[in-house]
Amino acid sequence: MGKKKKESATEKIERGIKELYSTEQRQLLLVTKIQRSNHLNGLNYYAAFNEDGVEIYQENKNATYNVMRADRFGWKEWLSVDVDHYTLKSNFLFKNGLDTWNLIIELKGKDVVQLIKSYTDIQVNDIPRPWYKKILGFRSGKKWKMVIASIVYLLILSSFISNFGNSGKQGTNSQSTTAATPASTQQTIDSTQQKVNTEEKKKEDAAKKKEQQKAIIQFEQELYSIEKPATAAGNRYKATAEKMGKGQATIYDLYEAASNANKQADKTRYAYSTLKVPEGLPADVTDMLKEAKSKLSTAYYTKSKAMEYAMEFIDSQKPSDLQKAKEETQMSDQFILAGITKVLEAKEKMGIPLDNKKQ
């Protein structure tokens, strides 16, 4: 009785994802290994396809099913996808008019295309590619890569011809040379391919980081834009209070300014609470931005309360209401500072100059 075939690492991970889906009573359409920008950290990543979208799983030997969910993308988020098939991988660039998402599938690219056509309304655009551009080294069309690839392929061809011509004509020395030549050639191939992959990886990482930086800067600009109406209303309230002290405004003017500042603060609170953090960012950066908008939302909640106490003071003239208004205002300022600090931490983490709001 033969030995049972040992399960490969990929088979083990795919089995784990299937078991996870079975436990959660969800339908799994396809699971396949993918390439990610941070795959050089030694971890493997897999994509699990279902009727709702794609879930990205990261290898984790300490987890119950040897994987942990790292990301999720819904089909409804995308309008079209450009598909570029290579020899060993397929590049999927999803688009929705504003954002893009790049997914690199290993080996099962055509299966994924068929799945997208069957289960979604996403328009699939196959990018035509001449046969020679599917060959390793010729895909990018860059001369230096093509030269290196040509040299490697010539070495392989010459090695094959040499081995074929010398077959049966030489003894032990021939066998030794025959064994050594393919090994040397393979080392050259591996070394060359590693250099090409490293170069491509650096460019992919740089492009991805630039897109992430743009997303963070845009998010920061949205944060500042949201607060402008509330800031303007607060300034009008302060100006009206100063005018009232000089006899240039009435108590009714002050009450109306406080009421308007209260409404604008509440609108700002809601806008911050519903603002979405950009997708595709590192987990720690995402957490920073979520905390930033949470603190800003809380800041304008307390600012709204401050205006309520100010309105009560205008009505009652109780010193306690005025004191509460001051305390809520101070607390609001502290939350605003904490929120801005988190945004600056996220920018610093992503290498964005702190004095640069535009990328």
Results as ranks from 00 to 15, higher is better:
217 I>V: 14
209 K>L: 11
231 T>V: 11
224 Y>Q: 15
234 G>D: 00
226 I>W: 06
235 N>S: 11
210 K>R: 14
213 Q>H: 06
217 I>P: 00
216 I>M: 09
229 P>S: 02
224 Y>L: 14
235 N>F: 08
206 A>T: 14
216 I>S: 09
207 A>L: 11
228 K>E: 03
216 I>V: 15
230 A>I: 00
227 E>N: 04
218 Q>F: 06
231 T>R: 10
213 Q>L: 05
221 Q>L: 09
219 F>H: 07
209 K>F: 00
207 A>P: 00
206 A>S: 13
210 K>I: 04
214 K>C: 07
235 N>M: 10
225 S>D: 08
217 I>F: 08
230 A>Q: 02
223 L>M: 10
214 K>Y: 15
226 I>H: 08
227 E>F: 00
238 K>L: 07
223 L>I: 09
222 E>Y: 05
220 E>R: 13
238 K>Q: 12
206 A>Y: 12
230 A>M: 01
217 I>S: 15
229 P>V: 01
222 E>N: 10
209 K>M: 07
217 I>K: 15
237 Y>I: 05
231 T>E: 07
218 Q>S: 13
212 Q>H: 02
233 A>N: 01
230 A>S: 05
227 E>R: 12
224 Y>P: 01
218 Q>Y: 08
237 Y>M: 12
208 K>D: 01
226 I>R: 12
225 S>K: 14
206 A>R: 13
225 S>H: 15
218 Q>E: 13
215 A>W: 05
233 A>D: 01
225 S>A: 14
228 K>H: 04
231 T>H: 02
